[in-house]
């Protein structure tokens, strides 16, 4: 019994230490939000700018220019500064929060490319992809553990499943675009996504 407890204690300690990095980014982000701390922001920039750029450039095959990736970094980090006061570490990790900002910037950039009129509806991207409604905070440790579970879970998915998940998130492709590109029936794409999610969900702490 005591040994089992010790074992659990050890496991939690490992998870906590793995999480300290993430914890660090969240703390910096809170400092930017509360104190408009420029040096904290510079550290965030030094960490996240290369990741945003790498994420965008790994879209591959779409002729993503370096300049466009640099522009995306500027747009995302600009919004990170402006919105940082609304960042709540109990609702999302720093990287998840920055991902949602990046996603919205990319949707916006795509619209500009296609020259679709945006003025008519009065709805901004941030109205439709609005994460401020999230009213379900988790305790930080739980939040952090879930993030780690998703990371481990993604790494252990069969390649045909993780490939599709990456195409959706990284390349921004819909299920039917993925189905066309890979020459797979739409039903197959859908069921691979569902299987992957089932697996990821089973690892979460509720």
């Amino acid at each position: 019994m005591a040994a089992a407890k010790q074992e659990i204690g050890k496991r939690i300690a490992v998870q906590v230490s793995r999480q300290t990095r993430n914890d660090e980014w969240s703390t910096l982000l809170v400092r930017v939000g509360k104190e408009r701390d420029r040096s904290a922001f510079e550290q965030l920039f030094a960490h996240f700018a290369p990741l945003i750029k790498g994420f965008q450039l790994s879209r591959g095959g779409q002729g993503t220019a370096i300049e466009a990736a640099d522009e995306l970094v500027q747009d995302v980090m600009f919004k990170v500064w402006l919105k940082s006061a609304s960042f709540d570490p109990s609702r999302a990790s720093a990287s998840t929060w920055i991902f949602t900002i990046m996603r919205n910037c990319r949707i916006d950039a795509l619209r500009k490319d296609q020259r679709q009129p945006d003025t008519e509806s009065g709805l901004d991207v941030d109205d439709i992809w609005d994460d401020s409604q999230d009213q379900q905070p988790l305790v930080f440790l739980q939040q952090a553990r879930n993030q780690q579970s998703v990371k481990d879970g993604l790494a252990s998915l069969p390649p045909e499943q993780s490939h599709i998940i990456e195409k959706a998130y990284v390349e921004g492709k819909s299920h039917s675009e993925i189905s066309e590109e890979l020459g797979l029936p739409l039903g197959t794409v859908k069921s691979r996504v569902r299987l992957a999610l089932k697996k990821l969900q089973s690892t979460l702490v509720r």
């Binding site: 993430n22 996240f48 290369p50 990741l51 945003i52 750029k53 790498g54 994420f55 450039l57 790994s58 990736a69 609702r91 999302a92 990790s93 990287s95 998840t96 929060w97 920055i98 991902f99 949602t100 990046m102 996603r103 994460d131 409604q133 999230d134 009213q135 379900q136 879930n146 993030q147 998703v150 990371k151 993604l154 998940i165 990456e166 998130y169 990284v170 999610l197 990821l200 969900q201 979460l204």
Partner: peptide, 21 residues
């Protein structure tokens, strides 16, 4: 909304593990 948290979390992990440039 709870499910969306997980789905956004996947995006967070993919950003976290992106090849850093």
């Amino acid at each position: 909304a709870a499910q969306l948290k997980l789905l956004n979390g996947i995006g967070g992990v993919l950003l976290d593990t992106a090849p850093s440039k």
